[in-house]
Amino acid sequence: MLEIRNLTKRFGGLTAVRDVSVTMEAGKINAIIGPNGAGKTTFFNLISGVHQPTSGSIVFKGQDVTRLRADQMARLGVSRTFQTTALFDNASVLDNLIVGHRLRTRSGLWDVLARTRLAREEEKICRDKAERALDFVGLNHIHHRLAADISQEERKRVAFALALCTDPNIVLLDEPAGGVNPEETVGLAALIRKMVDSGLTVCLIEHKMDMIMSLADKILVLSYGEKIAEGTPAEIRANPQVIEAYLGSEHAAA
C-alpha cells in the first residue's frame, strides 16, 4: 500500500532520516521502533505530508505522493494521530469528531451561514460518521462530555475515532499507548487489531516493546535516522544490531 524509497530529510546540517526504504503492507500492523532521536516522528511527518523530503520518494497505492501536503494526503486516505492528543477542550467529544469528517465535505462558508440544503445534508453525514466512529472505539457513552473532562485513555480513543472520521485507508499512530497504564494498553492494542480486522492498514510508533512484539506483523527499526533492521517480531528480537541499539539483552533471551 505504501512504498518508501531512499527517503532522506535534512534540517540544515542535521540528517534526521537517511536513505530509508520500506514497504508498509496493506491490511497489516506495521510498527516503527527505535531509541529517542532515531527519526521516527520525522519519518511519520514525511509520510503524512507535514514535511517535504530532501530526497527519495513516497508511493501510495501506486501514486507518487512525495510532494503532497498533509491535507492532500489526508484526502487520499492517509490519517494520523500525534503523541499529544490535541482536542477542542471546550467542545463535546462528539463535536470534536464532527470536525474530522469536514475533510470530505463540499459546503463552504456561505452554505453554513445560509443553512443551505447541502450544508444540512453534510452536517447529518458528519454527525452520523462521528457517532459510528465513537461506537467503534467504545466511547458512545461519553459523546456529550466536554473533551477537557475525559481521561488520558479516553483521549487516545477519541484520537483514533478522529482518524477514522476522515475515511482513511491507512492510519499512522504516533505512540498510541503513551501515558496509559498496562491494562489500558491492552485495550488500545485490541482496538488497533480491531481497526485492521475492519479492513484498515495501521502503522505505529511505540516504545512499549511487549505491545509491539505481540501486535505487529512487521517491524522497522531506526537508529540515528537510518534503517538498521526490518522483519517479523521474532526476527527483530533476535537481531544483534537491534539488541545493541535498543531492545536490550532481556528481549534476546525472551
Rank of each mutant, 00 (worst) to 15 (best):
L173E: 01
D95I: 00
T42V: 03
G138Y: 13
A163C: 03
R132N: 11
A70W: 00
K218E: 15
E184K: 11
I33D: 05
K40E: 08
A234Y: 02
F43T: 03
D111L: 00
I219V: 13
V158H: 04
T54C: 09
A38N: 11
L191V: 04
A238W: 14
N36P: 14
R157L: 01
M213N: 06
E184S: 06
K124T: 15
H51L: 10
Q72L: 05
L191M: 09
F136R: 06
T8C: 04
H251R: 07
H207K: 15
C165S: 15
F60P: 08
S107I: 10
K61A: 05
N45V: 10
D197N: 06
D174Y: 07
L172A: 10
R102Q: 15
N140A: 08
L220Q: 03
T8M: 00
E175D: 08
R127F: 05
D71W: 13
I33M: 02
G178K: 13
P182L: 08
R127I: 10
I32F: 05
L162F: 00
Q52Y: 05
G248C: 07
V59T: 01
H251Q: 11
R132L: 06
L103Q: 02
G231S: 11
G37E: 13
E154S: 04
G56D: 07
F160Y: 12
Q241H: 13
E131K: 11
F60R: 01
L200P: 03
T42A: 01
T232I: 15
L94C: 02
V186K: 09
A238M: 12
V17K: 05
G13C: 01
G34H: 05
S107R: 11
N140S: 14
A86F: 05
G27K: 06
N239M: 03
V99P: 07
F160G: 02
E230G: 13
E175V: 12
G34V: 10
F160W: 08
L146N: 03
I150F: 01
I150C: 12
T185V: 14
K227Q: 04
V78I: 15
K40S: 07
V180Y: 14
S198V: 01
V112T: 12
L164I: 09
I219L: 12
D167R: 02
I212A: 01
I125S: 14
V180A: 09
G77V: 02
N96I: 08
A159V: 14
M73V: 03
F82L: 00
M213P: 06
L14R: 10
N181V: 02
